[in-house]
Amino acid sequence: MTSPDPDSLLAEQLLRLTRRVHRVQKRHLAQRELGVTPAQSRLLRTLAHYSSPPRMADLAERLEVVPRAVTTLVDGLEARGTVRRVPDPTNRRVTRIELTDDGRKTLGEVRAARRSAAEEILAPLTAGQREALGGLLDTLIDGAAVEHC
């Protein structure tokens, strides 16, 4: 019988951690009764990074999803009153997406939920271990960026 490949074991651990992070974040969002899914919270956080309202295509590219997925997320958030579609001032065929005042408030709650989820997940680690993990994750993330070039 052959022993498991160490890289495969690491990949499995990363996948399990990703699923755990998702579950914990989802629970923390639900505890705050925001009515926002993890995917919607990601869109809200992404919107906050733009200095002016982005196009849906910009959001899809930044989120690395198909445009239809962004439309579905925006529809749900718009129904909740956290985002709104606004016309592009220079091209009437283009629609942009902006946070509403309720959206900014919800974003603050989402960020608080993510912080509390991170605290729960990282609780077993010392400060030094957290720093080391951060460095390792940066290396893996940067490697993925180089891969896409």
Rank of each mutant, 00 (worst) to 15 (best):
P4F: 13
S8C: 06
L9K: 10
L9R: 13
L9V: 15
E12K: 14
Q13N: 06
L14Q: 12
L15G: 15
T18M: 04
V21P: 09
H22S: 07
V24D: 03
Q25C: 01
L29W: 09
L34N: 02
G35N: 08
T37C: 04
P38R: 00
P38C: 06
S41N: 10
S41A: 15
L44C: 07
R45C: 06
L47Q: 00
A48V: 02
H49W: 09
S51I: 02
S51Y: 11
S52Q: 15
P53I: 01
P53N: 08
P54K: 08
M56V: 07
A57Y: 05
D58R: 06
E61A: 10
R62H: 11
E64I: 01
R68A: 14
R68F: 15
A69S: 13
A69N: 15
L77S: 04
A79V: 05
R80D: 05
R80K: 11
G81A: 04
T82R: 13
T82H: 12
T82F: 15
V83S: 11
P87S: 05
P87R: 14
D88A: 02
D88S: 11
D88R: 08
P89T: 00
T90N: 11
R92V: 07
V94K: 09
V94C: 01
V94F: 04
T100E: 09
D101P: 13
D101Y: 00
D102G: 00
R104A: 02
T106F: 10
L107N: 02
G108W: 06
E109T: 00
A112K: 15
A113Y: 11
R114L: 08
R115T: 00
A118M: 10
E120P: 08
E120N: 03
L122T: 03
A123V: 05
P124C: 00
L125F: 10
L125V: 00
G128H: 05
Q129L: 06
R130I: 06
E131M: 09
E131G: 00
A132P: 03
A132E: 12
L137Q: 02
T139R: 15
L140K: 09
A144Q: 14
A144H: 14
A145T: 07
A145G: 04
H148F: 02
